[in-house]
Design a protein around this nucleic acid. Structure first.
Lengths: 226, 226
DNA sequence: TGAAGTATGAAAATACTACTGATTGAGGAC
DNA sequence: GTCCTCAATCAGTAGTATTTTCATACTTCA
């Protein structure tokens, strides 16, 4: 899960970054709209958190543009109490949620989760796929009622598969979803293999058919139908 | 596709070579201008990548000479940040692109692709020939929209044919394009026959007329008109 | 027709890709 | 500190695709 934070107060920015990273997100930062805009050219973020009160230019333009060029990216607006108008306009333009300064980081996290969940599964908290049930809130996974204990990486990989059933997912795409863009190219895919092996094993142990099919030289396909 | 790398840092040189070889190029190296110059006498490279900051002599001379003796060879200049003048002069002299150190290997690859594409097909990414469409970027080939799965060798042979339609191509020329100069002389042409057979078969299977005509004792002619 | 050149299928060799179990090391809990 | 878990790495093996070789059959052309 990749988040872009656009915020000009260095202290707030770094504490947001630190907090979200402990929550397992891959976080990129920018301190101006311009910078933030440039980063969205290079990369598809799952969610952009933007402080709309930045000095350079107009944050609403950024939102407008993001919504047209990256329609599927979530947007959360952060604003000072007095810029209510901007907030409303932002929501009209298609941002998914807003926060008023000052806010608790846990609050940001909650909004983020909700936006991302909405993005992936239309806001459902419980996600079903054949015998598998995922609670996106608690990260708990069940196979026919039986709980399966997954590590965070395993969970994220499974989530990505279930968010994209019956679609051929390249190893690069999976790595990008789980780890961000800093390792997909250079390194080997050993770490992916290992996590997929462990995930497969845990699912099958609980009586789950092996929905995961390997496409040699490309990636994986998660499907309940042969 | 044959590339000559002229660069004096052994480490950079070898990593460039290794990377480009995995990308399917045939790579020769030189660590001085003099050496590089000599190699261009022997051989026609598709592109020369030259670090203009080498200690011996003047790299600009090399570029000037290359442009007159091998007008169709692509040239990419590599330079340190501060030698902007050299870079500009190089471009004036006819180099096709430049890179400033340090650079990502993927960046070099992108420039290389672009230069070679420009050389072969006037910069087009999508190359059309009758029913065949080639995406030079992804190496995908389509016959009337239908994808054809080709191996890398088959792809390169097809690319060479389509880059030279209606021209009689000797087996030596094809081999040189695909494998470089290390095998065309000595060995038999069995491997070429095999790849051409497989390529033909795959194209015809997808409903493509057999554009490839054999010229007994010489080579092949790729043409849409009888 | 015969010799050289070309085509073809199948097998062998090679290179590449994926899977697995074991191990290491970092970080948190106690 | 010690114990634990998890992520990451490694080495070895299995699996698959591609390239090359080879034996044989077929064409072309003098």
């Amino acid at each position: 899960m990749k988040i872009l934070l656009i915020e000009d107060e260095p202290q707030l920015l770094s504490s947001m970054k630190a907090y979200l990273e402990t929550e397992g997100y891959v976080v990129t930062t920018a301190s101006t709209f311009r910078q933030g805009m440039v980063k969205t050219y290079d990369y598809d973020y799952d969610c952009v958190v933007v402080d709309i009160g930045l000095p350079d230019g107009n944050g609403l333009d950024l939102i407008r543009q993001l919504k047209t060029t990256h329609a599927q990216t979530g947007i959360i607006i952060v604003s000072a109490k007095d810029s209510l108008n901007d907030k409303l306009t932002g929501l009209e333009l298609g941002s998914d949620d807003y926060l008023t300064k000052p806010f608790h980081l846990s609050e940001l996290n909650a909004r983020l989760k909700s936006v991302l969940r909405r993005r992936l599964f239309g806001g459902q908290n419980l996600i079903h796929f054949a015998k598998i049930t995922i609670n996106a809130h608690t990260h708990q996974v069940n196979i026919e009622g039986q709980p399966v204990i997954l590590t965070e990486k395993e969970y994220q990989i499974l989530l990505f598969f279930i968010a994209n059933p019956d679609r051929l997912l390249t190893k690069g795409a999976i790595a990008e979803f789980v780890w961000g863009d800093h390792m997909d190219l250079a390194n080997s895919h050993d770490f992916l293999y290992t996590h997929i092996k462990n995930l497969r094993k845990k699912l099958i142990e609980k009586g789950c058919p092996d929905y995961l099919r390997t496409r040699y030289g490309v990636g994986y396909l998660f499907s309940a139908t042969p």
